[in-house]
Amino acid sequence: MNKIFRKQQLTPYEADYAQWCAEQGALLREGRLSDLDRENLAEEIESLGRSDKREIASRLGTLILHLLKWGFQPEQRKTGWLLTIREQRHRIGKLIDESPSLKACPRKQLTGEFEFARLKAIDETGLPEKHFPVDCPYQIADVLDQDFFPGEPWLPNQLIRD
Rank of each mutant, 00 (worst) to 15 (best):
87 E>C: 05
74 P>V: 02
77 R>K: 01
96 I>C: 02
94 K>F: 10
94 K>G: 09
118 R>L: 13
45 I>N: 12
102 L>R: 07
52 D>V: 11
62 T>G: 02
107 R>H: 03
95 L>D: 00
57 A>C: 13
56 I>C: 09
48 L>S: 04
77 R>N: 01
79 T>P: 07
57 A>I: 00
68 L>W: 10
101 S>Y: 14
74 P>T: 04
99 S>R: 15
65 L>H: 14
86 R>H: 09
72 F>L: 08
81 W>P: 04
42 A>F: 14
55 E>G: 01
41 L>A: 08
113 E>L: 07
83 L>K: 14
54 R>T: 07
88 Q>E: 14
83 L>E: 10
49 G>S: 14
67 L>K: 01
84 T>I: 09
89 R>C: 08
116 F>L: 05
88 Q>V: 00
105 C>W: 05
55 E>T: 06
117 A>Y: 14
85 I>V: 06
79 T>V: 10
40 N>S: 08
84 T>Q: 08
51 S>W: 02
111 T>F: 06
77 R>A: 00
96 I>L: 09
44 E>K: 05
81 W>M: 09
41 L>E: 09
76 Q>V: 07
111 T>L: 03
53 K>Q: 13
77 R>D: 05
94 K>A: 05
107 R>K: 10
50 R>Y: 10
92 I>Y: 08
67 L>R: 04
102 L>N: 06
104 A>W: 07
116 F>M: 00
103 K>Q: 12
58 S>E: 05
85 I>K: 00
73 Q>R: 14
51 S>M: 04
55 E>H: 05
59 R>M: 05
100 P>V: 12
53 K>S: 10
63 L>Q: 13
90 H>M: 08
45 I>P: 12
65 L>Y: 06
110 L>Y: 14
47 S>K: 08
61 G>S: 03
51 S>N: 10
62 T>R: 12
